[in-house]
Simulated assay, not measured.
Amino acid sequence: MRRAFLSTLLALALPTLPLGALAETVEAGGAKFDTTAEVAGQKLVLNGLGVRYKAIFKVYTVGFYFKQKADTPDGLIKQDGPKRVLLKMLRDVDGKDLGKAFTDGMQKNALPEERAKTINGIFKFGQIFNDMKKAPSGAAIGIDWIPGTGAQVFVDYKPVGEVIPEPEFFNALLRIWLGEKPADDDLKNQLLGKEKRGR
């Protein structure tokens, strides 16, 4: 009798929950991403999402969060306010190998006029992955841009390493996927919301 009474109370209470209480998610490569995120007290929206492949293997799913959606690289890179790059690993990857892939991508795509101001950040960023040893399958790795503070790397939503203050570093980071020589052309379009997400 008591159990039935409690079940009735629960059934009556559930419809009164606000719609936003349950976060909406989308999926790519088997990894789920919330369609919104909060960084520096501001709500961001998922601009695009896709899977990074190496040959035929899925390496990670990556999503971009910004205040406003945009479908061009400049529309995202030059946008003011907080930003988030979030990766969810789909396989175990050596930390040094992952760090090298990221730093190579930044160096390849950094604008000539910004390159000198990216050196400090690229070095610190690479060191974080060297120290990590391994990026295991299932890990969430992200970089938040916080205006007035800088870029904060986090692993499984816990901050790691020093804050990187140069905005040029975060611009170079975004250009790994959005630059003239992106990691993957299809992934670039997915992150810009122009193509269907990878399976």
Rank of each mutant, 00 (worst) to 15 (best):
R2P: 09
A4H: 14
L6Q: 14
T8N: 08
T8V: 14
L9R: 07
L14A: 14
P15K: 07
T16E: 07
L17C: 09
L19M: 09
L19Q: 13
G20D: 09
L22M: 12
T25M: 10
V26C: 07
E27V: 12
A28F: 02
A28C: 05
G30R: 09
T36S: 04
A37F: 08
A40I: 12
G41V: 11
Q42C: 03
K43H: 05
V45F: 10
L46G: 00
G48C: 07
R52K: 15
Y53F: 10
K54V: 11
K54T: 09
I56P: 00
K58H: 10
T61C: 11
G63I: 00
K67D: 11
Q68M: 06
A70M: 05
T72S: 06
T72E: 04
P73R: 08
D74G: 06
D74Y: 06
D74N: 15
G75T: 06
L76N: 03
K78D: 14
K78L: 11
P82S: 03
P82C: 00
P82R: 08
K83D: 00
L86T: 12
L86S: 13
L87C: 08
K88Y: 06
M89Y: 04
D92C: 00
V93P: 09
K96E: 15
D97R: 04
G99H: 03
G99K: 09
K100H: 12
K100T: 14
A101N: 07
T103P: 08
Q107L: 13
I119E: 15
G121H: 10
G121M: 10
I122G: 11
G126W: 00
G126H: 01
M132H: 01
K134P: 01
A135M: 10
P136V: 10
A139N: 06
A140G: 01
A140I: 14
G142E: 13
I143Q: 15
D144I: 09
D144N: 12
W145D: 12
I146Q: 06
I146G: 04
P147V: 03
G148I: 14
G150I: 03
A151T: 04
V153M: 08
V153H: 03
V153K: 07
F154Y: 15
D156Y: 00
Y157R: 12
K158W: 07
K158D: 12
P159D: 08
G161A: 06
E162V: 02
E162M: 02
E162H: 05
E166V: 01
E166H: 01
L173I: 14
I176S: 10
W177R: 04
W177G: 00
L178A: 03
P182M: 08
A183E: 14
D184S: 05
D184Q: 07
D184K: 02
D184C: 01
D185G: 05
D185E: 15
L187H: 08
K188C: 02
N189W: 02
Q190E: 11
Q190D: 00
K194I: 02
K196F: 05
